[in-house]
Write a protein that binds this DNA or RNA. Structure first.
Lengths: 209, 209
DNA sequence: GTCTATAATTGGATAGAC
DNA sequence: GTCTATCCAATTATAGAC
């Protein structure tokens, strides 16, 4: 069972959702950078506004609160990856499918490094309701990974004691990237490393040579 | 070269460091719990005080600011693990030494789960100076791990492309634990799993059977 | 949709008695 | 070292003109 989409609340409706989204996205992006650099608690609405070239008050035409900006970031970083889960129903067996997912996950993370870091780190600054929505998405994602790990283990392709624990390790490993990644890293190499760390490493898949 | 000890500033000197530390530690512990549950930005001095059974103003007999409480948490969680580094000069070869360190790290983390989470997550809420001290410790710790990985790799006991990258992965993997660990987990099993994930997994050590 | 001006409140921090 | 009382700065958020 998938988590319910969070189309409901103010985040989607502040602007009429008919794609005058540009400005909103600019704000989200600038805010994410500022949150990443200085921390959510040290970021004022004035700071965010300045970073996007407007006055503090103007932000309230796009978001109802500072927390809602954070929520927009967090929601995006947990909703978007859900589409990668289709890879788990794609070609190949568990190994190929999971490899594809790891690659997609790492590439997405590299693409949205800053927002990803903020979404992970500032989760506790969300309201309980918003935090709930985000963690539900994450739990679902984790469960889907666990299921592939489990499937692979049953076929003898992975060697794991507890698929649940291994899935957590795989996710922690990948998400850890957002803490230290910077532009000097070669993303292709990163992907190769992390496919190795997860598939051959944590999950003990022995490549057939 | 080791990082300089941070004995200097206010954290150690607020109380005369002659062990009327009990109260201070109570505050740190209560604050850590509150920060972990609600986030640093959502925690007020009054909240922390209430959690330890005093009034907000009284906290200032022990700490000069809210940030300093956080710093005390972060400092402790980065200073203490440094002593485990002695294990890297202890018995056995690189594999045994690193295994010992992983075990110590995971056990310590389990023992101080809450503070560890806060120290990781709220790093960005520290002042630049304090953040610097903490990250210096962490960098040193990481470098030491990298060196053992490197030594093991040269001896053919680990199979890694880049010891630096592998060391990061090992640390991210372990630190990830603090996000989800709770009292229902069996720490011994956890240690076994994470020794496997890191040593046999990420570092591709083949146990000699 | 952005601005200036300002309201309103939170919340970190201090003063001074006990 | 803790309390009550309070200050005061920061900052979220609003009002209303343009």
């Amino acid at each position: 069972m998938e988590p319910v989409r969070a189309e409901d609340d103010a985040v989607a409706s502040t602007t009429g959702s008919r794609r005058p989204r540009r400005r909103r996205d600019e704000i989200v992006e600038a805010a994410a950078r500022y949150f990443a650099d200085h921390g959510y608690s040290n970021a004022g609405m004035r700071d965010i506004a300045q970073a996007v070239g407007m006055r503090g008050a103007s932000l309230y035409n796009h978001f109802q609160s500072k927390e809602e900006i954070l929520y927009a970031i967090a929601l995006r970083m947990t909703e978007d990856p859900q589409q990668d889960l289709l890879l788990l129903e794609g070609e190949g067996g568990p190994v190929e499918r999971l490899t594809n997912l790891v690659e997609a996950h790492v590439r997405r993370l590299a693409r949205h490094r800053v927002e990803h870091l903020v979404a992970l780190r500032e989760l506790s600054a969300l309201t309980p309701e918003h935090r709930r929505v985000v963690t539900d998405y994450r739990k679902y994602y984790q469960r889907r990974i666990r299921d592939v790990v489990d499937a692979g283990a049953r076929l003898g392709m992975f060697e794991v004691r507890d698929p649940h624990q291994s899935a957590i390790a795989v996710l922690d490993l990948m998400n850890g990237i957002s803490w230290w990644l910077n532009d000097s890293h070669d993303v292709d190499q990163l992907v190769r490393d992390y496919v190795d760390f997860t598939i051959n490493g944590v999950l003990h898949h022995r490549p057939v040579r």
